[in-house]
Design a protein around this nucleic acid. Sequence first.
DNA 1: AATGAATGAGCCTTCATTCAT
DNA 2: TATGAATGAAGGCTCATTCAT
Lengths: 190, 190, 190, 190
Amino acid sequence: MAEKGIKTKRYIVNTAAGLFSQKGFTAVTMKDICDACKLSRGGLYRHFGSTREVFIEVLERDKNDAEESINQAIALGLSAKKLLEGFFQLQKNDIAYNKNRIEVAVYEFSVAYPGQKEYLEERFYATVKIFAKLIGYGQERGEFLEGEAMMLAEHIVIFLEGLKLSSKIIGISEEFLTKQFAILGKLVMR
Amino acid sequence: MAEKGIKTKRYIVNTAAGLFSQKGFTAVTMKDICDACKLSRGGLYRHFGSTREVFIEVLERDKNDAEESINQAIALGLSAKKLLEGFFQLQKNDIAYNKNRIEVAVYEFSVAYPGQKEYLEERFYATVKIFAKLIGYGQERGEFLEGEAMMLAEHIVIFLEGLKLSSKIIGISEEFLTKQFAILGKLVMR
Amino acid sequence: MAEKGIKTKRYIVNTAAGLFSQKGFTAVTMKDICDACKLSRGGLYRHFGSTREVFIEVLERDKNDAEESINQAIALGLSAKKLLEGFFQLQKNDIAYNKNRIEVAVYEFSVAYPGQKEYLEERFYATVKIFAKLIGYGQERGEFLEGEAMMLAEHIVIFLEGLKLSSKIIGISEEFLTKQFAILGKLVMR
Amino acid sequence: MAEKGIKTKRYIVNTAAGLFSQKGFTAVTMKDICDACKLSRGGLYRHFGSTREVFIEVLERDKNDAEESINQAIALGLSAKKLLEGFFQLQKNDIAYNKNRIEVAVYEFSVAYPGQKEYLEERFYATVKIFAKLIGYGQERGEFLEGEAMMLAEHIVIFLEGLKLSSKIIGISEEFLTKQFAILGKLVMR
DNA sequence: AATGAATGAGCCTTCATTCAT
DNA sequence: TATGAATGAAGGCTCATTCAT
């Protein structure tokens, strides 16, 4: 049965995701992953041949399913403002609770494997497009200010990356996050 | 003579700064620095005992001398708008020409040496304060919109970190930078 | 049913023989054999516990059935010259078509398992004896030159080993082989 | 001073030559060489990056200086018979005292690094040429039988390879060697 | 100050081998 | 019989670090 192998693989990816979030890409070794998974060397290598392979799988796992949810919301005619605020709330939680901050690892990865740049660029723009769609939707409904939706979306995504990066260095409170997202909101909303 | 020693030290720091910018902190080894400096093991160790020591020296070297220049500008009563645009131009150049993007290395460093967090936080806020001062000055002169100068300054610095990070992954044109800085400007200027 | 098991075993031995011929003994791993046989680890281990076991089986398989054929030929009173030339032709084919060059693997095996030396020595002399018998037969019939048949047989076998070894390193043409075997022939035949 | 490094390098090559002679190429690991040299891992790697590098150096070291000695002998007008017998004596000693039997390692090496085949072929023919020269010289002086000197030389070299190979598997006495070399002599000498 | 030889620790990777299914 | 997951040992390789010169 391949069942068990797939389970182990999923388990490794989940465990490794945590490591990459904490320590970045370069600092995580196959041994770290072994230890974290309580798996022997050979056991790990049966599933992944390098941290590169594990990392790619982590990115795949995280592939945004946000797009779908936004399409649904738009189909239902929900308020763009509410939607955007909902998105911001998700990000705030991720940052406040230290989840999903894999951005720096992604950067390190792009340095270590320049050949993967296109893949990472695609990943960046996938997120951008979701925000752009949301902003365009808000503009159509008259809820948001006019402006180039794409540029604004890029601005937001870039700011979020900076925020995730900085949050590892400076202490960040709920209040701080609220204020910063309010600034972001002013750029978009009426 | 200590003269030559100081020169060598400066040379090592400059060379290492390039390495850290390119490869981050973790990926740079003492051997890398030896090779890049064309210096023997013993030669390097005479000056620095670890990559940590070298890195701190790199950060010290980069300590912002921007504060001084801003104080002078304020004393001279120059336009806040011009000043801010000048700052932005500097950042644009740094990014466009691939300079000074040591941010990710700083992050990695903070993970590797959590004990240095305060030092890094201080470094972050040093930059923030410069922007805050500039914004406050512009508000006093009525050139800038009202608002919490500190928060806005933080927003700008965080965005810049994100931009420096992203610029390593996605291709960034002059035009792109101009538009993004324009968005930033709208947050501050009338 | 043991039937299928025996078939699989034979299949493994045949496949492994090719590997040993190509790569020698030491360089072949159980994993190599698994892969070459498209068999799982457990599947292979059911039949053989180590490369040593597989190799011995390969040698057994190759055990010269030449002896029998020579006895028959002698009983029939065939020409010794023709017989020897026939043998040489077989060897030429083996070398020209890259078959059966397991000699070096045998050597490596003797280093890895010194305890098997007697077995290998026996194997060597089995071949020698065939040639000796053939030479003795030719001498009796007056077709061959006088001389110590045993020594000549050893000489031939040693030369053949050298030829098989060298043929892996230097390019060897049909013509080259013909000339070399002619030299060998001169030692024996009138 | 590079002095010490060169000494160590030479020492490693000499020590490794013994290992390769005993165990062949594939079975010798970098660790084996470390242990045999009583050198740490890093210490060995400072000089050689792989067994391949060490092995090539071993072959270089062994590059035949026989050519020179034969040229001198010919210039002095010495007896070809005596010379050939001298050469044979050297080979007998090497085999009897277990020296210099690196032939199988060479073969294994050629399998492991097919790209080095030309180099090895060249090495083979260097030895052949020495014998060919000697045989040609003997023929000129009327000491040796007529015949293609090159072919005979190849025959001798191939036989020697076979002998070195076989000597690892079968027990070989002085007497045995004397007889075998006598057979070889008959091919050449009057 | 600087060189480069050497050590030893640590991670990488591949296998032989076992075992539950 | 056969599969493939898992273990642990062994060897490869790279470094930080020290030291004699």
